[in-house]
Design a protein around this nucleic acid. Structure first.
Length: 829
RNA sequence: GCCUGGGUGGCGGAAUAGGUAGACGCAAGGGACUUAAAAUCCCUCGGAGUUCAACUCUGUACGAGUUCGAGUCUCGUCCCAGGCACCA
């Protein structure tokens, strides 16, 4: 064994051995408890970055720890390989997205292997593999059959100059990323997944996922945005028709003095037609559509509107309410129409003041409900209170009023209680090339025709040429777009949109359980064995979209009979970012630390160790070159402990029993067992790898102390060997390469991966004497050492009689003594 | 505005069920070894006072409270980060 720690050679050696022996390839084993550990798979952008290294290092510790504890651990890895960066890069580098993607995958796979992660590489796949997305197309067809996939028109970002649709990421500050020209909203037919069909279950389970961080669940709850309210119908003042609104404040209905519609509201055109307002309204609507394109600025926009020329009737006051089009009303929420109650809604208030509309107070604060306040209002009162000016409902509380008014409307067929969600259906159409084709055919005679399942897959053609403006070449590529109708055999065209890449990441975890299944998307038995994922680890940035879509897909696949789990991920760990100099690493800031360079300089074990030691996983990790030096130093210390004394350690038998040791050796023996307990609990129960590492550092420091003893006779080497072995096993999940090498150096022939996790003995934890802290009136005054067997009375007496304690209690009557066993005595005088 | 987190030395962080605040590491200072350097090892390291030392006071954003005892629990205030946000 080399006297010096040389990571480069040993890391390669063990990585090769793990691969050769297939140590991490697993199958279903009913005799052992399964554990499915998953880290969010990467987008193959070109190179692994430090965020990946941290994410996967955390996962690897957990995986290896559980393997040593005897679990059957599934720990797979793959590639989230469709997506726009491939198209952009391909245009720039004059290559093909497929080429670019698969080249990146090859390089990044080699990087992951160099880091020594314990993946079952036999299950690897990329989502751009036909053998993966073909099944996704099958899911789409089944969802289409069940009405869970449907088509409707929706707005997309459109660049007139480039004549193409733009993704949100391609719109920067309202202009096109290529030509800097303004982007407009254009209505196009799009495919949607009906996630709203599962909204209640998705919401319910956010209260039944104890293994998820509270804040992620809260974010999902906010995103779903359930609110209770009423649907109220307002008949038009002239002619037939009515306007439906959603409101949470039916109690303020008597104060509704006008109506606001979203510019896109379908009734706008009809309401203004033939009125003197027509031209003004159409101009306003056009302007609002333009303004919509940069959502950010919409917030700063002043509230504006225009009278449509028509009125509706307040169903309780029977007064006329002018109908306005207003720029702040969203078509996407509720019904796109809002009953305006200026006295009790700040936005309506501002609007009413601006356009001189009546403001009618119908709610008074509960504490001075009698004082009929007639001073002019300066702002809306949005609080609940007591109803006034509301005929029979006056005097009710807001809560009573909401219920009573809605009930009264319901009797007349003009209202009902209802629930509104913020969550909308998931638009999955992407007018992009590098994605999974949507398996639909459009026939002039038969209309929308799904591709028959036996005709799948619809293969994304790879012999296309990309267009310089970034638009998808598929609509222009006749061999793909031109086809025949499966129903009438007449000429037809394929859907040329592809699916959102979030679709691929919504079910990849299930495919990992049976990656080699070629007959069906999912092998029921295998999926049943492995799912749900026991522990999922990834960045907080996916708190809502990816995790919500994956939850939705799991429920859909469950209802189709493909899997049995209600939820995909039992436990979720969201790790923090890796930052440098206080900012997220980025090329533009020039603070990027390249994993390759770090591995080259220090070895993978050091990089892994630093990532785990510098911060607990959920916090941001500040990169520190000096910290990396420190991690490297610690590994050198570990190495020397074994290398400098290899012969003696090999020859010795590990110390097991507990008696007859000198104090320093007894202390080391106890420390060894304390460390085993601490590390086991820190890794297994808490994922606090930083404190686990700190505990091993303490053990190592103490071993160095013991090495200084004048005599190494008797049980010295056995006790030392037990400590060294424990040390190696405890760090094995964290720094596996050095652990393997040292384990072998001590004479073990099998991989440390197969060594059982060390156990501590309760007996060995017991000290003969314990240190007790003595407080007087809650202040620390002294420390005493007592026998571990001392009774409560003996400890109290020892504390009272202690000379330093006496300085503080002498001559004063003792009122009370609090004793915390093995820890502390507090004397109250 | 609403909803989450969070505020502890020069820095990263520890204190798991209310019981010694600052484990472990980094940086810094001092020393040993060396012809010298690197590496390694040892010592000091929240602040103030006093001092040969021992010791005392003080200290976990701020202010109250509960308790024998509060970084930890309660209430209020301030600040920071993240999410949502014209959501009717």
């Amino acid at each position: 064994m080399d006297a010096r720690y040389a990571p480069k050679s040993i890391e390669k050696k063990w990585q090769d051995l793990w691969e050769r022996e297939k140590l991490f390839e697993v199958g279903e084993d009913l005799g052992r408890e399964k554990y499915y550990l998953l880290e969010m798979f990467p987008y193959p952008s070109g190179r692994i970055h430090m965020g990946h290294v941290r994410n996967y290092s955390i996962g690897d510790v957990v995986a290896r720890f559980l393997m040593m504890r005897g679990y059957n651990v599934l720990h797979p890895m793959g590639w989230d390989a469709f997506g726009m960066p491939a198209e952009n890069a391909a245009i720039k580098a004059n290559t093909h997205p497929a080429r670019w993607t698969y080249d990146n995958i090859d390089y990044m796979r080699s990087q992951l292997k160099k880091l020594g992660f314990s993946y079952d590489w036999s299950r690897e796949f990329a989502t751009c593999d036909v053998s993966y997305y073909r099944w996704e197309q099958l899911f789409f067809l089944k969802m289409y059959e069940q009405g869970l996939a449907y088509r409707r028109s929706a707005y997309v970002n459109w660049c007139h100059t480039c004549h193409t649709v733009l993704a949100n990421e391609q719109v920067e500050g309202g202009v096109c990323w290529r030509c800097d020209q303004p982007v407009v909203q254009k209505e196009m037919d799009q495919w949607f997944f009906k996630i709203t069909a599962y909204v209640e279950e998705l919401l319910d389970y956010t209260y039944k996922l104890p293994g998820w961080p509270e804040r992620v669940l809260t974010m999902q709850q906010n995103w779903i945005g359930k609110s209770y309210g009423s649907k109220i119908l307002f008949p038009l003042a002239s002619g037939d028709g009515r306007i439906t609104v959603f409101t949470t404040r039916a109690d303020t209905l008597f104060g509704a003095t006008f109506m606001s519609l979203a510019p896109e509201h379908p009734m706008v055109e009809k309401l203004c037609r033939g009125t003197p307002q027509e031209e003004a309204v159409l101009r306003f609507v056009e302007k609002a559509k333009q303004a919509k394109r940069s959502d950010r600025e919409a917030e700063l926009l002043e509230k504006e509107g225009v009278f449509t020329g028509s009125c509706c009737i307040n169903p309780v006051t029977h007064e006329k309410m002018p109908i306005y089009v207003a720029n702040f009303v969203l078509m996407a929420y509720g019904t796109g129409a809002v009953m305006a109650v200026p006295a009790h809604d700040q936005r309506d208030f501002e609007f009413a003041v601006k356009y001189g509309l009546p403001i009618k107070v119908v709610i008074l604060p509960e504490d001075n409900a009698s004082a009929s306040n007639v001073e002019p209002l300066t702002a809306a009162n949005e609080e609940d209170g007591i109803l006034v000016n509301s005929s029979a409902f006056s005097g009710m509380t807001s809560a009573q009023g909401r219920e009573a008014i809605t009930a009264a409307l319901a009797e007349r067929g003009l209202g009902e209680e209802t629930i509104q969600y913020r969550l909308r259906d998931w638009g999955i159409s992407r007018q992009r090339y590098w994605g999974a084709p949507i398996p639909i055919i459009y026939c002039d005679r038969c209309g929308v025709v799904p591709v028959p399942a036996q005709d799948l897959p619809v293969v994304l053609p790879t012999d296309v040429e990309l267009l310089p403006n970034g638009a998808s070449p598929l609509p222009f590529y006749e061999p793909f777009a031109k086809t025949t109708c499966p129903q009438c055999n007449g000429p037809a065209r394929r859907e040329t949109d592809t699916m959102d890449t979030f679709v691929e990441s919504s079910w990849y975890f299930a495919r990992f359980a049976c990656a080699s299944s070629h007959e069906a998307p999912l092998d029921r038995q295998k999926v049943h064995y492995w799912l749900p994922v026991n522990q999922y680890i990834g960045g907080i940035e996916h708190a809502v979209l990816h995790l919500l879509y994956a939850r939705f897909f799991t429920k859909v696949l469950r209802d189709m009979g493909y899997l049995g789990a209600d939820e995909p991920f039992l436990n979720l760990l969201t790790q923090g970012m890796v930052i440098k100099d206080g900012a997220k690493m980025s090329k533009s800031k020039g603070n990027v630390v390249d994993p390759d360079e770090m591995i080259e300089a220090y070895g993978s074990d050091t990089v892994r160790l630093f990532c785990l030691f510098a911060a607990p996983p959920e916090k941001d990790l500040e990169w520190s070159d000096q910290g990396v030096e420190g991690a490297s130093r610690f590994l050198t210390r570990i190495w020397r402990l074994a290398a400098d004394h290899q012969e003696y350690l090999q020859a010795a038998a590990s110390y097991r029993d507990g008696a007859g040791l000198s104090k320093p050796l007894a202390d080391l023996h106890r420390k060894t067992h304390q460390t085993i307990k601490k590390v086991t609990e820190d890794i297994g129960d808490r994922f606090h790898f930083n404190t686990a590492i700190a505990a091993v550092m303490e053990l190592v420091n103490q071993m160095y102390q013991v090495m200084e003893l004048p005599s190494r006779d008797g049980p010295f080497w056995p006790v030392m060997k037990a400590a060294v072995e424990a040390m190696i096993l405890l760090v094995a999940p964290i720094v596996p390469h050095i652990a393997e090498e040292l384990w072998q150096a001590l004479g073990h022939s099998e991989s440390v991966v197969k060594a059982p996790w060390p156990k501590w003995s309760e007996e060995a934890l017991q000290a003969e004497e314990v240190l007790i802290v003595v407080q007087v009136n809650g202040k620390l005054r002294s420390r005493i050492v007592v026998s571990a067997e001392a009774t409560r009375e003996q400890v109290e007496q020892a504390a009272i009689q202690d000379a330093r304690t006496q300085d503080f209690i002498a001559g004063k009557p003792i009122k009370k003594i609090v004793v915390v066993p093995d820890k502390l005595v507090n004397i109250v005088v």
